[in-house]
Computed example of a mutant assay.
Amino acid sequence: MDTILGPLYYAVSWIIVQFHSLYSLVFDKNSGWAWGLSIVSLVVLIRICLIPLFVKQIKATRNMQALQPKMKAIQERYKSDKQRQSEEMMKLYKETGTNPLSSCLPILAQSPFFISLYQVLNHIAQGKTVGFIDKELLDSARQAHIFGAPLSVKFLDSASKVESLGATLTDVRVVTIIMIVLMSLSQFYTQRQLMTKNVDLSVKTPFMQQQKMLMYVFPVIFAVIGINVPAGVLLYWLTTNVWTMGQQMFVIRRNPTPGSLAFKQRQDRLRAKGKLKEDPAEVEARKAVEAARAKRQQPKRQTKAKRQVAGTTPAASDAASTDSTTSAADEQKPSLEKKQGESGTDAKAAGGAKDAKAGGKPGQRKSGPQRPKHPSKK
């Protein structure tokens, strides 16, 4: 590996030496500030150079999100023919100009520098010169501590090795644990920010599930790897995570994914400032919705008795209505009987008057020819 990455060792060590010379004008050249800020400046320089790749990563990620429904349809259609499925996928990528590896470009581009810095710090820990770090700079770098932890020590290093560099094992482990936790939290927050604010929630795709899984897997992976890398590399890693988090916050605020929560918030900000040109139909529809909400009447406050009546069950309501009907019928019963009695009396009087006209006594029927009786059969 030294043979392959040898030129990068010289490049990384030269950049660190130049920044160290600059910061030595302000701080002690053997201090952790001079060497630590040199590593941080190395990160900033590399990330500035990687901004074009980061822009390509954003575009590739959005294209992959937009293609997920079509990719899923291809997988369902050719699920029994893997070769045809791969051909259709490559055809789709070619037609849309999408490269699946573009989203990994910043990580792939940083990896050689990360490995080179690891090897440079490892050489410093072993007391070996590397690249442009000669014997004098090697002794200075070995004396540099970050909050009590030498730049070249690891969490798993022995107490004797740590003491040989002028530090204690407790200080080293406390500092490295804090840096690992901050590194993992910054990675988790960056991924969570991407999932909650910059993803089109109207389309449910497998890509979203993958991103959600990575949100929890990456911090664990970083924590496991972090205990076996030097403190200087942890500083590099933490710095690049913080840079990624800030860079992503800027992109999400200024250029969010269409359909995402961040996109809606940006539209609201532009609308409030009068900088958003909207479709007149959308404006009228929004005004109609707001007017309907304004006209909607709020429910009036009811007393406890009314709430209890309103909250009765249908069976109780039926029973109550039945009882009220029965009571009303009972109240009307005497009056009905009285009316019926009066009607009967009137009818009887009318019958008597009719009999009187016929020449008979009241209450008697008019006599008429008698029907002959049939003789009884013997």
Rank of each mutant, 00 (worst) to 15 (best):
H145I: 09
K197H: 14
A144Q: 03
K161N: 11
V181E: 04
Q187D: 04
Q193K: 11
T196P: 08
P150M: 05
D157W: 01
D157M: 04
Q193N: 12
S184V: 03
L151A: 08
D157Q: 01
Q187E: 12
L156Q: 09
V174D: 01
I177C: 11
Q193D: 13
G166Q: 10
P150H: 10
I178A: 14
S184L: 03
D171E: 15
M179H: 06
T176W: 03
M183D: 08
L169V: 13
V162Y: 04
E163G: 06
V175S: 03
A149E: 00
G166M: 09
T170D: 14
R142A: 05
L185G: 13
L169Q: 08
M183T: 15
K154T: 04
G166H: 03
L156E: 15
R142W: 10
A149N: 02
V175P: 02
Q187H: 08
K154S: 02
L165R: 00
A159W: 02
F155Y: 11
V174S: 04
I180H: 06
Q191H: 14
T168V: 06
S164I: 02
S152I: 12
R173M: 04
F147Q: 06
M179C: 11
T190K: 12
S164A: 13
D157T: 00
T196C: 07
Q143N: 14
T168H: 07
I146V: 15
T168P: 03
V172M: 01
T176P: 00
V174P: 06
D157K: 00
P150Y: 02
V153M: 07
T196W: 08
I180G: 04
S158Y: 00
K154F: 00
V181T: 03
I178V: 15
V172A: 01
T196H: 12
I177Y: 09
T176K: 02
A144F: 01
I178H: 05
L151Q: 04
L165K: 01
R173H: 00
S160V: 13
T170M: 12
A167E: 02
V172G: 01
V174H: 06
R173C: 00
S152N: 12
S186G: 15
L182R: 05
T190E: 09
K154H: 04
A159V: 13
S152R: 04
G166T: 07
K161F: 10
R142G: 08
L156A: 14
D157C: 04
F147R: 07
S184N: 05
I146P: 00
M183H: 11
V181C: 07
R142E: 07
T170I: 13
E163Y: 03
T168S: 14
L165Q: 08
V172W: 06
R142Q: 15
V174E: 05
M179N: 09
G166W: 09
Q193S: 14
T196A: 13
G166R: 10
K197W: 11
L169P: 05
Y189K: 14
A159F: 06
F188P: 03
Y189P: 00
M195D: 14
S158Q: 06
S152Y: 10
V175E: 05
S160D: 15
V153I: 07
V175R: 03
A144G: 08
L156W: 09
S164Y: 02
D171K: 12
M195E: 13
N198Y: 09
